[in-house]
Every structure is written in C-alpha cells, then in structure tokens.
Computed example of a mutant assay.
Amino acid sequence: MTTNPAFELVVRRHGTSVLRMCTALLGPGPDAQDAWSETFLAALRAYPSLPNGANLQAWLITIARHKAIDILRANHPVPTEHFPETVVPPEGLGQLELLESLGSLSELQRKVIGYHYLLGFPYADIPAFLGGSAASLRRAAADGIKALRKLHTDAEETP
C-alpha cells in the first residue's frame, strides 16, 4: 500500500507546476501568487482525507484551476468613466512577454497549452480536466502555438 508523502514534500515537488498553471490562467503577478497560496491552503486542509496513492499533481492542478477561476470572478471588470493607466513592464524580462501574449489566446487554448507544455500532461490526460477529446485539445493547442509564433514573429519584424 502506497502512502502519501509529507505535505512539505508535495509543495516542493509540485509548487512550480501549480505556479505555472496559475500564471498561465491569470498572468504573472500577485493574482497568480495568490492563487498558488490559496491552492496549497485548500490542499493542506483536504490532504489528510486524500486517498493514498492519488495523483497529487492532477489533484493540485484541479484545485489551482478552481482558485484561479475564483480570482477571475472576483476581479471581473467594472465599468468606469476613465480607463486606468496601463503599466509598462520593464524590458529584458524574457519569458514575461510570452506569458503576457498568452492573454491574446482563447481560454481553451491557454488552458491546453498550460496543461501540456507547462505541466507536461499528455493530450490523452487533459480531457479529464477540460472535457472534449484529445484530438480537439491537440488542435486547440496547435492553433494557439501558431498564433503565438505569428504574434512574436510580427513583433520581431516591427522596427
């Protein structure tokens, strides 16, 4: 019989994956960090009743997805008279530009890319999280990657 590891080890092993998922859904910044924290707080409460040998990464990613959705719902846009100032991130942050450009993709494309490319789930496992078929999710990811390549190629060609 397999027993679950100490919760501290779970955080060490899967903390990066959970943060990647939160960042893919919410963008880099405090919202993703808050979702990460809320994920592990909820997981800590539920961990003692988790069956031994459960897929911990899938379990944590599901919790992270729910926490990110909660934050998105809490931060829904409110109409205002004036637009707030836009914040320009400092140059030279490398992957930050790529993470920000994920916002131009559809929600499904972002999620599939997050599960497959950031977390390493095979396409056959992703329908358990998102529904649909592995083939349709593979197509969504391919379309998303194509859009990202085009966006970054166009940005590099612009003087």
Score class of each variant (00 low, 15 high):
residue 1 M to S: 07
residue 1 M to Q: 03
residue 1 M to D: 06
residue 1 M to T: 06
residue 2 T to Q: 03
residue 6 A to W: 10
residue 8 E to L: 15
residue 8 E to G: 13
residue 11 V to C: 03
residue 11 V to F: 00
residue 11 V to R: 00
residue 11 V to N: 00
residue 12 R to N: 07
residue 17 S to V: 01
residue 18 V to H: 05
residue 18 V to Y: 06
residue 18 V to N: 01
residue 19 L to Y: 05
residue 19 L to I: 00
residue 19 L to N: 01
residue 22 C to M: 10
residue 24 A to G: 15
residue 26 L to Y: 07
residue 30 P to L: 13
residue 30 P to W: 13
residue 33 Q to E: 15
residue 35 A to V: 11
residue 36 W to I: 02
residue 37 S to G: 14
residue 37 S to L: 13
residue 38 E to M: 14
residue 38 E to A: 15
residue 41 L to Y: 14
residue 42 A to L: 07
residue 43 A to Y: 03
residue 44 L to S: 05
residue 45 R to I: 07
residue 45 R to W: 06
residue 46 A to T: 13
residue 47 Y to S: 01
residue 48 P to E: 02
residue 49 S to R: 05
residue 49 S to Y: 02
residue 49 S to A: 13
residue 52 N to R: 06
residue 52 N to G: 08
residue 55 N to Y: 12
residue 55 N to F: 13
residue 55 N to S: 15
residue 56 L to D: 10
residue 56 L to Y: 11
residue 57 Q to W: 01
residue 57 Q to N: 02
residue 59 W to C: 09
residue 61 I to F: 09
residue 62 T to W: 14
residue 63 I to T: 07
residue 63 I to M: 09
residue 63 I to W: 05
residue 64 A to P: 00
residue 65 R to M: 08
residue 67 K to H: 15
residue 67 K to P: 10
residue 69 I to Q: 03
residue 70 D to L: 08
residue 71 I to H: 14
residue 72 L to P: 02
residue 73 R to Y: 11
residue 73 R to T: 14
residue 74 A to S: 14
residue 74 A to D: 10
residue 75 N to H: 05
residue 76 H to E: 11
residue 76 H to D: 06
residue 78 V to E: 12
residue 78 V to H: 11
residue 79 P to G: 08
residue 79 P to F: 09
residue 81 E to A: 06
residue 83 F to D: 09
residue 85 E to G: 04
residue 85 E to L: 05
residue 86 T to N: 12
residue 86 T to K: 12
residue 89 P to M: 11
residue 91 E to G: 07
residue 91 E to N: 04
residue 93 L to Y: 09
residue 93 L to D: 10
residue 94 G to R: 09
residue 95 Q to K: 06
residue 96 L to N: 07
residue 99 L to D: 15
residue 99 L to T: 11
residue 99 L to P: 02
residue 102 L to G: 04
residue 103 G to E: 12
residue 103 G to H: 11
residue 103 G to Y: 10
residue 106 S to P: 06
residue 107 E to K: 01
residue 107 E to L: 03
residue 108 L to V: 04
residue 108 L to T: 05
residue 108 L to Y: 00
residue 109 Q to L: 03
residue 114 G to L: 07
residue 116 H to W: 03
residue 116 H to Y: 03
residue 117 Y to S: 11
residue 117 Y to H: 12
residue 118 L to D: 15
residue 120 G to F: 03
residue 120 G to C: 04
residue 123 Y to Q: 00
residue 127 P to C: 01
residue 128 A to F: 12
residue 129 F to Q: 12
residue 131 G to W: 02
residue 134 A to R: 02
residue 135 A to T: 07
residue 135 A to E: 05
residue 136 S to C: 04
residue 137 L to V: 10
residue 138 R to Y: 00
residue 140 A to V: 02
residue 142 A to I: 01
residue 143 D to E: 05
residue 143 D to F: 04
residue 145 I to N: 11
residue 145 I to Y: 13
residue 146 K to V: 05
residue 147 A to C: 12
residue 151 L to R: 13
residue 151 L to S: 13
residue 151 L to N: 13
residue 151 L to W: 09
residue 151 L to P: 02
residue 153 T to A: 09
residue 154 D to A: 02
residue 155 A to P: 08
residue 156 E to A: 07
residue 157 E to K: 14
residue 159 P to F: 14
